[in-house]
């Protein structure tokens, strides 16, 4: 059996590590893409506290204009 600096086991571990890295990178891209689309569609929820975003709500009519 020849002695190799890299054993079969290292190749298998690398395939897992690279695979997981690719999955995580795809997940980041996916969440970013979803965020962009949701904001473009005018979703009014702020993610951090689940409150409507004041800046996109229709302005309140002043009392006199009603």
């Amino acid at each position: 059996m020849p002695l190799n600096a890299e054993h079969e086991i290292h190749r298998r571990r690398r395939s897992r590590n690279v695979g997981l890295a690719a999955v995580l990178a795809c997940f980041v891209a996916l969440v970013f893409g979803l965020t962009v689309v949701k904001v473009q569609q005018g979703d009014m929820m702020e993610a951090f506290d689940h409150q409507p975003r004041v800046s996109v709500l229709p302005p309140e009519q002043p009392e006199a204009a009603r």
Binding site: H7, R12, S15, R16, V18, G19, L20
Partner: peptide
């Protein structure tokens, strides 16, 4: 060599095994 041979009985998973 013994430490290498012990690994051969229990092959570690590759990424594609998790996909499978």
């Amino acid at each position: 060599m013994t430490d290498i041979n012990t690994y051969e009985g229990a092959p570690e998973a590759e990424f594609r095994d998790f996909v499978a």
